[in-house]
Design a protein around this nucleic acid. Structure first.
Length: 603
RNA sequence: GGCCCCGUCGUCUAGCCUGGUUCAGGACACCACCCUUUCACGGUGGGUACAUGGGUUCGAAUCCCAUCGGGGUCACCA
């Protein structure tokens, strides 16, 4: 027997001639990949990686990347979700050639030149699915089944109780691949409107999934049961819609997470049973590539519930340390007492509650959706680079012999290959992402950083954006850029700006060390600096800096000058460089603060 | 539990296909030192890994087998 595992990875399987796809490099058919999310929420970071890999492969092969919305779950799908997913993809820079169109802020339209394939929302393609359902029934490869969901569920429970795998038993009257009288009668009942589902008559032979990452994956005969391909509500199931669409939309390569691997035999079996409406030829089996899964550092799945877990733990810790904290949280979030107690008890993982608690407590909740990363100040380029490395590696070295791991989408589009996708599940290391983001920020010019940071602040930190003087962004940005791994960090580093000039508190330790020690030497320095600053015009970072330097020459170093000023100005011993800090604060606010400090602390 | 996938530093990984050049290289994180007006940035250095056990071979992280471990999946959700 042919041993697939001995094949080089990525090689086509010669054991199954129908798989010999013509859709290879240089062939007449161009490569088409697709990302097919179901619009039931935001774009998950793992989904973003799937989309990126699909995009990358299509670009590398000079083909097309398609976005298809799998909204066959009428109850859970929503248009808002679909739009949100598209916006997240566009924000990351993953743009689709084919798919619904989306207008960007800059006026461009993604998907403007999409091929006409009859719609990219599955819910609008139902008549197409139904034609193929009928084809399958007439061929004796699918049949209506009339059991209710409850009946099936009861039987499944029985099987589970007996520690057996439940498989729907094919009715004795159904003959494989024959449209017999019994089937015809069932079909008539179904067409007459009797409630039913359509089940696929699965083959009773081994099914092979040709996977370009894992090699051929064989599923023994009898593992597949007669699964449902059309639900009672008339919508196709995922398995059916995906096969019909991939065929009719010309998809040549299916790349998705490994959690789908176990479903793939169903798809392959379906493909072998279905015929093209025009040519009568069997459906193509696309090239499959299942990529490794992404987990949290502790091995759990990355899920929205992580936010609730994180916020709950922080809240519980705070309450354990200080019982009244509970009341403060209730008051501070404006949430009903019941919501908070349910939340703390773990009865609900509602994201809205988690986010309110998180905001009130000043927590940064773990990001799991693309939008979370965006809201927390991450840069698309850093996310893309990091994601690309999760399960793929270019296997190249830099000029100085290190592993190449910093690259952009252009590089990915030029070098991506399925052969270099790994097979091992990966853990999502936020620390490394953060480091990538810091590097991306560090690589920006001051002007570039200031511009992007400002736009971000205006959307996600409006109160802060308001206190930054219009002409102060670049000066401030220059001062905090190196201190920020994210845009939000840069806001934190600029916290001094948000302080109320007349009420901000002083850190006693910092005061003792830098102001009142040595008979108030620090205070004397504050006084001296205040005198010089009072007459300064313009109040410019460079000029301020040189004044401080002059002072430093006569008083034993910069430390003796800078630290007292820092404490006087911000209440703490930590701040960005003083020139920029004072300049952005402005002369009036600076003098107000220095005067207040002198007034409060002088003896 | 059945079926399937996977197993190199704490994490992402290079190396594995084409066994020796590897007492295993890089990055992030961590620690130490240097730089320094604080905090950062930056620089230098350091520790930590081939899951285990059997083979094959002169020689195995690399090939084979077993065990153990991790994960996925078993829906009228995708």
């Amino acid at each position: 027997m042919f041993h697939a595992a001995s094949l080089p990875r990525g090689a086509p399987s010669h054991a199954y001639p129908w798989l010999m796809s013509k859709e290879t490099v240089g062939g007449s058919t161009e490569c088409v990949t697709r990302f097919a999310p179901s619009p039931t929420g935001h774009l998950h970071i793992g989904g973003a990686r799937s989309a990126l890999f699909c995009w990358a492969y299509a670009k590398r092969m000079g083909g097309r990347f398609m976005l298809r919305i799998e909204d066959t779950d009428a109850a859970r799908s929503s248009d808002e979700s679909a739009r949100g997913i598209m916006e997240d993809l566009a924000w990351l820079g993953i743009e689709w050639d084919d798919g619904p169109s989306l207008s960007l802020r800059d006026g461009r339209v993604v998907g403007a030149h999409a091929r006409d394939v009859g719609g990219y929302f599955q819910a609008r393609r139902v008549p197409l699915y139904n034609r193929f359902i009928e084809q399958l029934v007439k061929a004796g490869r699918a049949y209506p089944a009339f059991e209710s969901n409850e009946e099936i569920e009861a039987q499944r429970k029985l099987a589970v109780a007996a520690k057996q795998t439940y498989r729907y038993p094919r009715p004795a009257e159904i003959e494989f691949a024959v449209f017999n009288a019994a089937l015809e009668s069932r079909w008539k009942r179904a067409c007459a409107g009797e409630s039913h589902v359509i089940r696929f008559a699965a083959p009773r032979e081994e099914v092979v999934v040709p996977d370009q990452v894992l090699g051929d994956v064989k599923i023994a005969a009898g593992e597949l049961d007669d699964f449902v391909i059309r639900k009672a509500d008339g919508f196709p199931t995922y398995h059916f819609a995906v096969v019909i669409d991939d065929q009719t939309m010309g998809v040549t390569h299916v790349m998705r997470a490994q959690e789908h691997l176990a479903n793939t035999p169903r798809h392959v079996a379906l493909q072998r049973a279905l015929r093209d409406e025009k040519t009568g030829a069997p459906f193509r089996t696309p090239g499959y590539a299942h990529m490794p899964l992404i987990f949290n550092m502790d091995g759990s799945k990355m899920s929205k519930r992580d936010k609730a877990k994180f916020a709950r733990k922080a809240a519980k810790d705070a309450i354990a340390k200080d019982a009244p904290a509970r009341e403060r949280i209730i008051a501070g979030t404006g949430l009903p007492e019941k919501s908070i107690s349910d939340f703390l008890a773990g009865d609900t993982d509602a994201v809205e509650i988690a986010e309110k608690v998180g905001r009130f407590m000043g927590l940064t909740l773990p990001e799991v959706e693309v939008h979370d990363f965006r809201a927390n100040g991450y840069i698309p380029a850093a996310i893309i680079n990091f994601l690309a490395l999760l399960g793929w590696n270019p296997g190249m070295k830099t000029a100085d012999g290190k592993d190449l791991e910093k690259f952009d989408m252009k590089f990915i589009a030029e070098h991506f290959s399925i052969e270099r996708i790994g097979r091992t599940n990966a853990k999502f290391d936020r620390a490394k992402l953060l480091s990538f983001n810091a590097d991306a920020i560090g690589a920006m010019s001051d002007a570039e950083f200031a511009g992007l940071w400002r736009v971000w602040c205006e959307e996600f930190e409006p109160p802060f954006a308001k206190v930054v003087p219009g002409d102060g962004w670049e000066t401030l940005g220059r001062a905090v850029k190196a201190r920020a791994k994210t845009f939000r960090d840069a806001v934190k580093a600029s916290a001094f700006l948000m302080l109320d000039d007349n009420t901000y508190p002083f850190d006693p330790a910092a005061v003792a060390k830098n102001l009142t020690a040595a008979d108030g030497a620090g205070l004397a320095m504050v006084r001296a600096v205040r005198e010089r600053l009072a007459g300064l015009d313009p109040f410019d970072a460079g000029l301020i800096h040189s004044i401080l330097e002059q002072l430093a020459q006569h008083s034993g170093g910069m430390g003796a000058v800078a630290q007292p000023i820092r404490v006087a100005l911000t209440g703490s011993a930590v701040s960005p460089p003083l020139g920029e800090t004072l300049a952005v604060l402005g002369k009036a606010r600076t003098l107000t603060r220095l005067d207040r400090c002198l007034r409060l602390l002088s003896v």
